[in-house]
Design a protein around this nucleic acid. Structure first.
Lengths: 102, 102
DNA sequence: CATATATATCGAGATATCTCGATATAATGC
DNA sequence: GCATTATATCGAGATATCTCGATATATATG
């Protein structure tokens, strides 16, 4: 739990937006039939919704992953990103402690 | 509650450290007798503990104030900064909502 | 193996943040 | 008014972040 890196990752409106979008798979186009069993979203879908360049989104997802907010799983040519709820809660808990605990 | 501005203010280790120090007045030198009734800390004390320049600390406190994390009160030539617990909790609540609420 | 597709990485210009010293402002005391 | 003290603001160089297009890598398919 690197609070430093996590806050830096959140210090960008689009990255926070992406984390919100990932709460609900239906924010993105339906998965291909062969990916029906996977609960992540591929980079191209995120890029389409964010309207930023492919490299920027790939970079963003890398930062969110390093911060622990998302997990990535490769399947063939696709990388599926999904929220890591455990780590998100751990971050919130850590920030809460840092800001409130005496 | 400007989450954007708040996260930016927290995106710096020393500013977070200062917020932690302000939890406990005894992290700083004792107040002057004439300030005994005030529960804030003056800039000079914060600067001494942080070991950064006066202008940097003044800037930091300004950012923390704009984010709502601290309140400032002028008394003569001194400005006393103290945590704004209400706003800190409001921020935590907002981030929690943004990250978790569906 | 050649081509196509999806993603990651690289390099760079634009912009923002950091942090300082210098200076300005405000209040105090003589 | 003048000197001192506390804080705020200004201007700037150093560093970091943003975001892109170009390129590299990995996989799938013919």
């Amino acid at each position: 739990m690197d609070v430093e890196k996590s806050i830096a990752a959140l210090n960008n409106p689009m990255r926070r937006k992406i984390l919100e979008w990932l709460k609900d798979r239906s924010n993105f186009p339906p998965a291909l039939p062969e990916h029906a069993d996977l609960d992540g979203v591929c980079v191209a879908y995120i890029q389409e919704k964010a309207q930023l360049s492919q490299s920027t989104i790939s970079n963003y997802m890398g930062l969110l992953k390093q911060a622990g907010f998302v997990s990535a799983e490769r399947h063939g040519q696709w990388t599926f990103y999904r929220r890591n709820e455990t780590n998100i809660r751990a971050f919130l808990s850590a920030v809460q402690d840092e800001l409130l605990k005496s």
